[in-house]
Nucleic acid binder design. Structure first.
Lengths: 249, 249
DNA sequence: TAACCAGATTGACCCGTGTCAATCGAAAGC
DNA sequence: GCTTTCGATTGACACGGGTCAATCTGGTTA
């Protein structure tokens, strides 16, 4: 079965970043800088607090990060996941304080690069600022699709879409094998991502399993059995299923 | 939101809109380009269809635009409003097709500038790319806050937040007088923005009115009577309220 | 091995929001 | 002036998803 034909629905979501630059010449400085500022974070550890001001650019080397916001009563909404290859904060205005809480979902290695060093890197590496732009465009596209589901999608559609979105992003960085991928999230966390209670996440996941659309081994290994149906449930317009390739830089 | 700090779009249609960049030297070319590509759109007219590929950058000179996405069944979610001074599509990847439907909410004047011309403008005007970055950062921040309300906010909180967000944005471009502003939206449209049915929008607006938090004259002139309570309902952290609302730049 | 614990699962019940439909009000057109 | 029309308003009712609470499961620690 040709999964790729179904992925075309949301090509923009697939602007998944990788660290493969189109032209590697001159990227030695980048490699060196990434290595110098590299550090690891245990799963669950807080990397940046909401409200704190940050003047570094994060490059995710491995693992998952969650970017979240909370209501005053403590209810948390995950705004986005950052996956390997992602760049965070590339364009925040100089005076802007980060209002996002950044947390390691899994063990994560990131390079936290001071803004000015990052700036000089991008100045010297046009491919890098191109990559930045692609990541920004991909982020906006992802946010838009997600807002659509948050505003107008049923619980089932939200779950289905989240699975597809993550499938596509992971696929772009080579972390999908066959039609299976590792989803390092509790149902609680997945719920915070799609705006549902963990209980209802459970109900929806079980329903999708019963329908034979997905299957789960353990509680973190997902296999997509019927991408066509899943996409349909997710509210992905079949008319937009066109041939396009995952943009790999 | 933070757009106005470095740019003011004066929506005087007769004299032509003027954009004030922090350093006006060299902006003559910008002025000329804006004027050359200027065009008007009647309220309700479609500017760009979802799925169409666009290779222009839009500068909003006057009026409101809505950027929206739809589910296959036609349910529409407004992703964002674009107000005077906004720049659309500044960084979309070259191959990226616009997946947003862009529509004029009111009579609108925009400059639709071909991507390559826009590129040469920003190359020559560092202030302009700085402005771009600020707009991107502001959009990102706005989307995050909105996703939080869509995922975790009650209907009342969503309405309250939407009013405050628009109040702040309009305030930044000088379109708030006292505590009143013109809201050129039907309840249906407001509902498509906050993810509620028009009927429930009505209920919430009426409730806020009864509470004495806002008042409406006609159905488009909003006055915020009690910003503290409104912000509280919106789930805005009181400590952060001063940062985002008070500052008139 | 047994106790333990976090997360998944399931059922019962409640409530917020959507839907439907009727009515009202005001602006626009004839 | 009268009619038309679109949007606001309100009530009645249905239902999706939240909440609470009771297991169940698998992995971890003593």
């Amino acid at each position: 079965m040709n999964i790729a034909s179904h992925l075309t629905a949301n090509a923009d979501v697939m602007n998944g970043p990788t660290w493969h630059l189109p032209d590697t010449s001159g990227s030695a400085a980048l490699e060196r800088t990434l290595k110098t500022h590299r550090r690891g974070h245990r799963a669950g550890s807080m990397i940046e607090l909401e409200g704190g001001k940050s003047n570094v650019t994060y490059c995710v080397l491995s693992g998952w990060l969650s970017l979240s916001k909370s209501m005053p009563d403590g209810q948390r909404q995950i705004i986005d996941f950052a996956l390997p290859g992602d760049i965070l904060n590339p364009t925040s205005a100089d005076n802007a304080s980060s209002t996002l809480q950044i947390e390691a979902v899994t063990y994560t290695t990131v390079s936290a690069i001071p803004r000015n060093i990052w700036g000089s890197l991008t100045d010297g590496l046009p491919q890098l600022s191109l990559l930045e732009n692609r990541i920004i465009a991909g982020t906006f596209s992802r946010f838009s699709e997600r807002m659509l589901r948050l505003g107008k999608g049923s619980a089932e559609a939200r779950i289905a879409y989240a699975l597809i979105e993550l499938y596509i992003r992971l696929s772009a960085i080579g972390q999908v094998h066959g039609d299976s991928f590792h989803l390092p999230l509790t149902q609680q966390t997945l719920g915070e991502f799609v705006g549902l209670s963990s209980v209802h996440v459970c109900r929806m996941v079980r329903r999708l399993s019963r329908l034979g659309v997905i299957s789960m081994e353990g509680h973190m290994a997902i296999t997509i059995l019927d991408m066509g149906t899943l996409a349909n449930i997710a509210g992905i317009d079949p008319g937009r299923l066109e041939n396009s390739i995952i943009p790999r830089l």
